[in-house]
Design a binder for these strands. Structure first.
Length: 674
DNA sequence: CCACTTCTAAACAGAT
DNA sequence: AATCTGTTTAGAAGTG
């Protein structure tokens, strides 16, 4: 019956909410943290533990960024918009309108959707957040390093006075030295990162900029104030920290620590800051007023705890939360200070966002212009056509709803639509709803998969092959050239991140294909049945397709030949553009991977058009093809090569948080359970 | 416009 | 009874 599709479809939503998103993952990271040293790290206790602590704070920073983004939206709700919920189509024009519509705790998934309707994709946002986090970390490290130095000196002094044995002194000094070296290394890394960001224009530390990213949090607040704030907060919430529910307090902690870098103190308040300041200062007032329209949903209340930065007070119900809010977070110096801190962070994020938007626009403009230049490309990279088709695309793939944000988004300007186009999501959603590459596209599935194995494993990009091809590949890859259905499932999930979602759909499709195609032969086994491939039958399916047209094959090859270098180039570019933090995982990073793949597929699409519209050897060949002459096929013509690729209807659901190291072999159908 | 292919959804039945 | 496996049908959509 429908049990599979029914249950799995339903569980898609919950699965996504169950921590498969980066946000939740990060929250968990923050929440699991324990044994924090309250900032008073003993001078002797240095080394790996402290580094781990720094890493934890790093994670906490990311959590903080997300929380702050949420709060930014919420602030805008309270400060800029009337609480009216039924504004007509607010979500289409205003980026934060979704948040306005739902002034409640925004889940990371909702954030993703919101952000996808904006200019930034979740991946981009994540990169952005990491950039912010890197900046914070640098400050934090500096401060931390300084503290360590002071403590070291202090301790050495004390030891000398106490007449300690030289041996102990030496030991302590050695530890300190090691730790300082580690800190220095990290610092250098961060500085490199920073420089890289500056070079890329991702970061602006130039004079004249409205805000200086290096001192985002210190503006309007002196370090001592922040330190005091921090102490208050940390001391007030020690119990919660032990329960592993302390990410919020850590947020503030790290924020304050990082902001207290003495050398970077700046009291400059720019106009934006004051504007935000008003909002921020108003925040506590707003919190004290229950939201009539959402009596039980409050931006600062979720999962039974107070979401005020630095507070994790457990509130049984909404009423107690309100009490807590009024009593603990009244309009006092501390709350104001917290708001100011947050204001600065938000402001910084806004600036960064604006910058990235700008860059993205430039990129999209550039690509669009470029792609339309060749007169022959009727659908240049789908950058434009995608917009009009995205709606039907998402309608055609209701399953991918969490990741088809482009659908309702009426682009204000084509440029604004850019980012969503460039995202994997939209790139796959957009364009022809079911864009099937012609046979000419076909690339030897085995070689493609082999070459892009890591990519497919990590990026939730739909492989450009038909189910039949993939099934065949799975079977042929097996040592005995036979697989059970479940083993085929496992192969799919193991090889392709894409197939870790929407299991109901693709599993049904797999079964359907197995049954439908004669080339798949079911062989009764001792303990069940296995599926094998009848190569002859498989070949029969495509005689007229590739039809021994050598030029077509060549074109396929050339297009494929282009893809691989493109991936590499794109990855390199992305790595360079992003951050050192990301370079190591450029391929493992779904965002980059998906993007690379998306662009690759777009390119393939363009190729396809070129191929189909002007036969293989026509003079009007696309520049891309011309630039990449035919190369020899490395593999005998595979039957599946003649197959059309999988349709791209469904969004390539890319959850940034996808656990890439997960072994899906033992858990073939896990996406629904996660 | 049509035939074909592919994908998706779903119903159904038998096996586990 | 629930789930898995396998078959089949239907419709949508892309391609040539």
């Amino acid at each position: 019956m429908m049990q599979e599709s029914g249950t799995e479809t339903k569980s898609n939503g919950s699965a996504i909410q169950n921590g498969s998103s980066s946000g939740n993952h990060l929250l968990e990271c923050g929440g699991l943290r324990e044994g924090r040293s309250n900032g008073e790290t003993p001078a002797v206790d240095v080394g790996a533990a402290d580094l781990a602590h720094v890493q934890q704070q790093q994670q906490a920073l990311q959590v903080a960024r997300q929380l702050l983004l949420q709060q930014q939206q919420q602030q805008q709700v309270s400060g800029l918009k009337s609480p009216k919920r039924n504004d007509k189509q607010p979500a289409l024009q205003v980026p934060v309108s979704v948040a306005m519509m739902t002034p409640q705790v925004i889940t990371p998934q909702q954030m993703q959707q919101i952000l996808q309707q904006q200019v930034l994709s979740p991946q981009q946002l994540q990169v952005l957040l990491q950039q912010q986090q890197a900046l914070m970390l640098q400050q934090q490290l500096q401060e931390f390093y300084k503290k360590q130095q002071e403590q070291l000196q202090l301790q050495l002094l004390q030891q000398q006075h106490a007449g300690k044995q030289p041996k102990e002194q030496q030991q302590v000094a050695t530890q300190q030295l090691a730790f300082q070296q580690q800190l220095l290394q990290m610092q250098q890394l961060q500085q490199q990162h920073l420089l890289s960001l500056q070079r890329q224009g991702l970061l602006t530390i130039q004079p004249g900029q409205p805000a200086l990213p290096l001192q985002p949090l210190t503006q309007g607040m002196i370090p001592a104030e922040l330190q005091q704030l921090w102490k208050e907060v940390t001391s007030a919430h020690t119990p919660e920290e032990a329960t592993g529910n302390n990410h919020s307090s850590l947020d503030l902690t790290t924020t304050c620590v990082s902001s207290s870098a003495p050398s970077k103190t700046s009291l400059i308040m720019n106009p934006h800051a004051s504007t935000n300041g008003q909002l921020s200062v108003h925040t506590p007032k707003r919190e004290s007023l229950p939201n009539e329209e959402h009596p039980h949903s409050h931006p600062l209340y979720g999962h039974g705890v107070c979401k005020w930065p630095g507070c994790e007070a457990v509130c049984e119900d909404f009423q107690s939360f309100l009490k807590h809010l009024n009593s603990e977070h009244a309009l006092d110096d501390r709350s104001t200070a917290q708001c100011r801190v947050q204001m600065q962070v938000v402001q910084q994020l806004e600036l960064q966002l604006a910058k990235d938007k700008e860059r993205l626009q430039a990129m999209m403009t550039h690509l669009h212009v470029k792609s339309t230049e060749p007169k022959t490309a009727p659908q240049p990279l789908n950058l434009v056509s995608s917009v009009t088709l995205s709606k039907s695309a998402s309608e055609a793939s209701p399953q991918s709803l969490p990741h088809t944000p482009t659908t309702p988004t009426a682009p204000i300007t084509p440029v604004t639509q850019g980012p969503s186009v460039i995202t994997t999501t939209s790139m796959h959603t957009v364009g022809p709803i079911r864009r099937r590459y012609s046979d000419k596209y076909n690339v030897p599935i085995s070689s493609d998969i082999a070459q892009n194995q890591e990519f497919y494993k990590n990026a939730e990009v739909r492989p450009p092959f038909t189910y039949a091809s993939l099934i065949r590949q799975a079977i042929l890859e097996s040592p005995e050239k036979q697989l059970t259905l479940n083993e085929i499932y496992n192969w799919f999930t193991r090889m392709f991140a894409y197939f870790r979602r929407n299991a109901a759909t693709w599993k049904n499709a797999v079964r359907h294909n197995l049954s439908l195609h004669k080339c798949f032969v079911r062989v009764e086994n001792v303990k069940g049945a296995v599926w094998t491939v009848d190569e002859v039958e498989f070949q029969k399916r495509r005689p007229q397709k590739i039809s021994g047209n050598p030029s077509l094959i060549k074109n396929m090859q050339s297009s494929h030949a282009y893809c691989t270098p493109l991936n590499a180039a794109l990855q390199a570019s992305m790595a360079e553009n992003s951050i050192p933090l990301y370079t190591t995982a450029s391929m493992g990073n779904p965002s980059l991977g998906t993007l690379a793949s998306a662009m690759r597929e777009e390119l393939n699409g363009a190729m396809e058009h070129t191929n189909s519209n002007e036969s293989d050897s026509s003079p009007g060949r696309s520049p891309l093809q011309a630039a990449h002459p035919v190369h020899v096929k490395e593999e005998p013509l595979d039957p599946e090569e003649a197959e059309g690729p999988l349709s791209l209807v469904t969004t390539a659901n890319h959850s940034p948080d996808f656990d890439q190291d997960r072994d899906y072999e033992d858990e073939p159908v896990n996406e629904d359970m996660e």
